[in-house]
């Protein structure tokens, strides 16, 4: 029996995005409190380590590093979450065969990743408020760096999710990415701490440029205007480039 058009719901984009946030963040944290504790504590572990080893001298840099890595992990988290929801629960198939478009699904899942990181971001923001000296323009610049970092990592996560067909592959991608983009690059300390030939290796990661900019904004290092411009350009180019790759790989309906 056909439901008449006038009785069909007025589809709300807000509801569709809310569904993703509930499924991929809120319900998980609400029903499994240990997840909430983990989201708060995990970005702090590196921060604590760096602060202890540097006897407190790198606290500010480490807080910025924590913020960058939280945003980066949020974007990369897209990879394992999309793959998990698609392959293990067939949720994506159910959504494909529904009035939700792929843009809304992606936007919802991306926002859910930010929501998932909110507890950690809140703790780090409080620490930043007390321990970082930033002008209003500096705050805006730092937010822009964090947003670009999130967009670039989201594009990486999205592209990788199209390759991984099960959870084991997906976890392997996640571990590989965090080693490449968080352990090697100087996110939690200045780049000058890395001995010379390895410094070039660090410049292969977009997190390095984000960290350099953040450290310059807070006055921990002094970059030339040219270097600042180059760092911004590279970050923007990486985000846009990766998005284009992700867009060309994306297929809502399989072939």
């Amino acid at each position: 029996m056909e439901v008449p058009l006038e009785q069909r719901p007025n589809r709300s984009r807000f509801s569709q995005i809310l569904a993703a946030v509930l499924v991929n963040a809120i319900y998980e944290m609400r029903n499994y409190p240990v997840v909430l504790v983990n989201t708060v504590l995990s970005p702090l572990s590196f921060l604590i380590l760096i602060v202890f080893v540097s006897q407190g001298s790198l606290l500010g840099v480490a807080i910025e590093g924590g913020l960058i890595m939280s945003m980066f992990s949020s974007g990369i988290g897209l990879q394992s979450d999309l793959s998990h929801l698609k392959n293990d629960f067939k949720l994506q198939d159910m959504v494909v065969s529904s009035p939700t478009g792929w843009q809304t699904y992606m936007l919802g899942i991306a926002i859910s990743e930010i929501v998932y990181s909110l507890p950690a971001l809140t703790v780090l923001a409080i620490l930043a408020y007390y321990y970082l000296t930033l002008s209003f323009a500096g705050v805006i610049e730092l937010l822009a760096v964090l947003l670009l970092m999130f967009l670039a990592s989201m594009a990486i996560g999205f592209t990788l999710s199209t390759f991984s067909s099960d959870i084991v592959q997906s976890f392997a991608f996640s571990r590989l990415i965090s080693t490449l983009f968080s352990a090697v690059p100087p996110v939690y300390y200045p780049i000058t701490y890395i001995p010379m030939p390895f410094r070039y290796l660090a410049y292969l990661s977009p997190t390095t440029y984000a960290a350099e900019l953040a450290q310059d904004i807070a006055g921990y290092i002094k970059l030339s205007t040219t270097m600042v411009a180059i760092d911004w350009l590279i970050l923007i180019a990486v985000a846009v480039g990766l998005f284009m790759v992700a867009r060309s790989k994306a297929r809502w309906r399989e072939v």
């Binding site: 719901p9 509801s15 319900y27 067939k90 009035p99």
Partner: peptide, 22 residues
């Protein structure tokens, strides 16, 4: 397909309907 283990049946059905734009 299987319902997401960390959700309840109510949350599963509710979120599906939100996904349909209700």
């Amino acid at each position: 397909a299987r319902p997401i283990p960390w959700m309840t049946p109510r949350q599963t059905v509710l979120s599906y309907l939100l996904w349909r734009g209700f």
